[in-house]
Amino acid sequence: MKKLLETMALIGAIGADSMASAQNLSLAYFMGPKHPMNAGVFTPFAEKLAEISGGG
């Protein structure tokens, strides 16, 4: 049982470290770039996210 808990703690620490260092966000969707959702939702979302995150 102790070994299992140690392993779970190690996996959690590795997972937390990789999440903390994430710097890129990508959005994938099945619609093409000319779809109205791209201009109406996804592009404004990306612009607002860049503004809030300081362009990162």
Rank of each mutant, 00 (worst) to 15 (best):
F30G: 10
I14H: 01
G15F: 00
L27G: 02
Y29Q: 07
E47H: 08
E51C: 04
A46N: 11
Q23K: 15
M1H: 07
L10H: 02
A50H: 06
G55K: 11
A46F: 06
S53L: 15
A20P: 01
L10D: 03
A22L: 12
I52A: 14
P44R: 12
G40F: 01
A16W: 00
Q23V: 01
M1Y: 00
T7C: 09
Q23F: 00
L5A: 05
G55L: 10
G15T: 06
I52L: 13
K34E: 11
F42L: 15
T43Y: 02
K3I: 10
A20M: 12
G55T: 07
H35E: 05
Y29K: 09
P33I: 02
S18Q: 13
K2Y: 00
E51V: 05
A28K: 07
Y29S: 07
A13N: 04
P36E: 11
H35W: 05
K3A: 08
M37Y: 07
A39M: 10
T7R: 15
K2C: 01
L5W: 04
G56A: 14
L25R: 10
F42Y: 15
P36C: 08
A39R: 14
P36R: 12
K48Q: 13
I11W: 01
M37C: 08
D17A: 12
K34R: 11
S21L: 08
P36W: 04
K34I: 02
D17H: 03
V41W: 01
A28E: 06
A16D: 04
I14R: 08
I52G: 01
G32C: 06
S53M: 15
G40L: 12
K2L: 13
L4K: 10
A46R: 15
A16R: 06
A13I: 02
A28V: 06
K3F: 01
L49H: 03
G12N: 09
A16T: 07
G55W: 08
